[in-house]
Amino acid sequence: MSIQHFRVALIPFFAAFCLPVFAHPETLVKVKDAEDQLGARVGYIELDLNSGKILESFRPEERFPMMSTFKVLLCGAVLSRVDAGQEQLGRRIHYSQNDLVEYSPVTEKHLTDGMTVRELCSAAITMSDNTAANLLLTTIGGPKELTAFLHNMGDHVTRLDRWEPELNEAIPNDERDTTMPAAMATTLRKLLTGELLTLASRQQLIDWMEADKVAGPLLRSALPAGWFIADKSGAGERGSRGIIAALGPDGKPSRIVVIYTTGSQATMDERNRQIAEIGASLIKHW
């Protein structure tokens, strides 16, 4: 067993022997301040990774656009098919120029040779490549099948209805392509620590998230040296922004954090800054 596999296998073990965790309302004060600064709703939840206990939450059962955070769930569904012998990570998928959609920095470079399922998941999570996500959605049967996968996990809230990039439209009061912070946090925890996926697939999923290259201005910008984070960000229309993450000190994750916002007129930089400040408060009061 590799060191990384050992780390993920012992996530519940280490967490069980940690000192009790206590909620700190100071972080919620910052979440509410972010709402004021952005002029928009902000949803927040913080779960203990081992027990699933909610440590703090704000608007945990209000719907927010998922945006690209759905790509972690998508690759979880792909990995479940791999575990069941219905898919192979090494299978190569070929596609054409007509398949390319807006923001496809990886797939646009491989029109000639195609990409493997493993490479597509890596591109979808680490670079948020939209064509990679659409190609992977095709392998599982489309958005409705991802929703069905989530329902089978016990998540009857999260739903995907459309493809990239239309799913980022974020129309107010439109339930399409949305989740709730509580539902997303619980589902992410199941994917990373539950028995739904094999140990190898859980490790692969967290490795992809740990290698995320496009979430630097968010929670990662607030992390002290030595902290662990595996995350996936999302951005959408109407001032929408979000991030889902597993993080913790001492090089291992111990909490799940989900943050979503929508309806702001603020710039992307300002949305990023507010999420980073929430992260800084979380870490300060850990």
Rank of each mutant, 00 (worst) to 15 (best):
E237P: 11
L218Q: 03
D269Q: 10
H151P: 05
L191N: 03
F70D: 01
D155P: 01
I125H: 03
R92A: 11
L160K: 00
A246H: 11
V117N: 15
S96D: 10
V82W: 12
L47Y: 05
L191S: 13
R159I: 11
E26S: 13
S201G: 12
T27I: 13
P165H: 14
W163D: 10
T116Q: 07
K252F: 14
E26P: 14
T267F: 11
R92V: 12
E145T: 09
L188D: 00
G39Q: 13
L74Q: 03
A132V: 01
L137S: 12
V72L: 11
L150D: 02
A246W: 09
C75N: 02
M268R: 12
T116P: 12
R118L: 13
Q86L: 04
I45E: 10
M127D: 13
Q97T: 07
T139Y: 09
T267L: 08
L28N: 12
L150W: 09
Y103R: 10
K109F: 14
G194K: 15
A245Y: 01
K53Y: 15
E270G: 03
N130M: 01
M127I: 09
G236A: 10
T158C: 03
L49A: 12
L136A: 10
W227N: 00
A266R: 05
T179P: 00
T107G: 09
R162T: 10
P60C: 09
G39D: 12
L219R: 04
L74T: 10
E56W: 03
P25G: 11
N98E: 06
P172D: 05
A230G: 13
I278M: 10
D48I: 08
V214W: 14
G142M: 03
L247D: 02
P65Y: 03
V29A: 14
T178K: 02
G234W: 00
L74Y: 01
M180R: 11
L47Q: 11
D212P: 07
I229E: 02
L160M: 11
S128C: 01
L100D: 02
N152Y: 07
S201F: 10
A246G: 13
I54E: 10
Q37V: 05
D155F: 00
D129K: 00
V258Q: 01
I243E: 15
A280E: 08
G142I: 01
G248V: 00
S254E: 05
D99W: 14
S201C: 15
E108W: 12
E56K: 07
T267P: 08
V42Y: 03
A276V: 11
M180V: 12
T107A: 12
L160G: 13
V42Q: 02
E164K: 01
R255E: 04
A211R: 15
Q97D: 14
M127G: 11
Q88C: 06
L196F: 12
M115W: 02
W227T: 02
K190L: 13
E26F: 15
E119G: 14
R273H: 04
A200S: 09
V214P: 14
I206D: 07
G141S: 12
L79E: 02
T107H: 02
F64T: 02
G90R: 12
R176C: 15
K252H: 05
D99M: 13
N272I: 06
D269L: 13
A266D: 07
W286I: 09
D212R: 12
P25L: 10
I259V: 10
L218S: 03
G248C: 02
L150Y: 13
L74K: 01
L199P: 08
A200G: 12
S128P: 01
A185F: 00
C121A: 05
I256M: 12
R255A: 08
A225W: 14
A200P: 11
D129I: 01
T131S: 13
M115P: 02
A183Q: 13
L199F: 15
K252M: 12
T131W: 05
G39E: 11
H24R: 11
D99A: 09
P143S: 10
A133S: 10
S264R: 08
F149D: 11
T107Y: 02
S221A: 11
D250K: 04
S80I: 15
G251E: 13
Q37G: 05
D161W: 03
N168D: 07
R63F: 06
G85E: 07
I93N: 10
Q97C: 06
E175T: 09
S96P: 09
R162A: 08
C121V: 05
L73Q: 13
P181H: 01
L111Q: 14
C121R: 01
L191Y: 11
A84Y: 12
G141P: 09
A215R: 15
I275V: 15
H24D: 12
L192N: 03
R238S: 09
M67G: 13
S128Y: 00
G239R: 02
H285E: 06
G236I: 02
L282K: 03
G85Q: 12
K109E: 08
S254I: 14
T112R: 12
S122M: 07
V106R: 11
G154A: 11
T126Q: 08
V29Y: 13
H156R: 10
Q265S: 08
G226W: 12
V258E: 00
L89Q: 04
W163E: 07
E195L: 03
E210C: 07
D250N: 04
T147W: 05
N152E: 15
I125P: 01
S104E: 02
L223F: 04
E145G: 11
I140F: 14
L167K: 00
R91P: 01
F58K: 15
V106H: 11
E62A: 05
D207L: 09
Q37T: 05
A84S: 14
S57H: 06
S57Q: 06
V78T: 09
A200R: 12
L197M: 15
P143G: 07
Q203G: 04
H110Q: 07
G39F: 09
I244H: 00
L196E: 09
D129V: 01
T187N: 04
D177Q: 01
W208G: 02
S221K: 03
D161T: 11
M67Y: 02
S233R: 00
T187G: 10
P25Q: 12
Q203N: 03
N98T: 09
V72P: 12
F228D: 03
D83T: 07
Q203Y: 04
G248L: 00
T107E: 01
T139G: 09
F58T: 07
K71L: 00
P217F: 04
I206Y: 03
H151T: 05
R92M: 14
V258T: 05
G251Y: 07
N134H: 10
E164N: 01
R255Y: 02
M67C: 04
K109M: 10
P253E: 05
L247I: 12
D269Y: 06
V72F: 03
H24E: 10
R92N: 14
M184N: 02
A246V: 12
A276N: 10
P105Q: 07
D129P: 01
